[in-house]
Simulated scan of single mutants.
Amino acid sequence: MDLVLPTLAPARSQESAAARIERELRGRIIDLSIKPGERLSEAEIAERFQVSRQPVREAFIALMRAGLVDVQPQRGTVVVKLSVRRMLDARFIREAIELAIVRRACEHFDRHYLDRMRKLIDEQMLAVDRNDKEGFLHLDNMFHIALADGAGCSAAWAAVEMQKAHMDRVCALTLHSPGRSEVVVDQHIAIVDAVEAGDAERAVAAMSHHLNEILRAVAGVEITYSDLFE
């Protein structure tokens, strides 16, 4: 396996080796730098991170619990293929939580986070111009984190984070469709505008439309990238 980790992010304060490896691999699995069906080599990853095999095993266990890797006879640890069923389950949970978050945001929202969300949208536009899909996905996640933080719902977003990896992997594929990134940016603008106006009905409708975007796109990507789906 040729592990695609060109530049390792700096370790976070108090972060264990296992947590760092799990975070890095999770990110690469979600943005599809590590492809569905690809085998992960314990020895290669240990060498890449300059650690023993034990923290790599711990990272694999965490990824297996998240449903992102599986242990297969004769192959070892393998990245699971994309699953429409798992994506739909994750979207259902995310919609229930995030509609409540955006409704709360319309009742009270920290102005600092509104400014941050608009800045993140500007950065997403730049990522589109650079065709930086990985950066775009990261900024997308930061946008939704800022929304939850501004609404005082950080704990609720943590619950979303535990479920949304399967949705994020399919979203990464949809960004290969022409104009898809621009659609996401426009939807983010609509969400921020509604929150700033304190219009809960419009904000909920904008968020629902945004989260349903994947339903409109999944059939096409499942056909185009059928080898990546189970």
Rank of each mutant, 00 (worst) to 15 (best):
I189L: 14
H138L: 14
C171V: 10
S181H: 00
M167H: 01
A165Y: 00
G135Q: 09
L88R: 04
I45A: 11
E58G: 01
V128E: 09
D129P: 00
V102T: 12
E182M: 07
E230C: 11
A59D: 09
I34F: 03
A159E: 10
L139S: 11
D89R: 02
R23F: 15
R23T: 14
A148N: 00
R169A: 12
R169I: 12
S226E: 09
L137N: 01
A151M: 01
R28E: 13
P178F: 09
S177G: 11
E98P: 04
V160W: 00
I30D: 09
E161H: 06
R169G: 10
G220Y: 01
L82W: 00
K133I: 15
E47A: 15
V78N: 02
R216L: 15
Q124L: 12
Q187A: 06
G150N: 03
E38S: 14
V218K: 00
T174M: 10
M162Q: 10
S208K: 13
A194Q: 01
A158C: 07
A159F: 03
A148G: 04
I191D: 03
L32G: 05
M117K: 00
A90R: 00
T77N: 05
V4H: 06
V4Q: 06
R39H: 08
S83C: 05
R39P: 03
E134S: 15
A151S: 06
A151G: 07
V184C: 08
L40G: 06
R85C: 08
A59F: 08
A90L: 02
V204I: 14
L137I: 10
G198Q: 01
S226I: 06
C153R: 02
M1C: 10
A100W: 01
E24M: 14
A46M: 05
R216D: 14
D193G: 07
S208L: 15
L228D: 11
C171Y: 02
H209L: 14
V80R: 01
G76N: 02
A194E: 04
R104V: 12
E123L: 13
N212V: 06
R103N: 07
G150E: 01
N141C: 12
H176Q: 07
I223R: 05
V78C: 08
G152F: 03
D89M: 07
A148D: 01
Q124V: 10
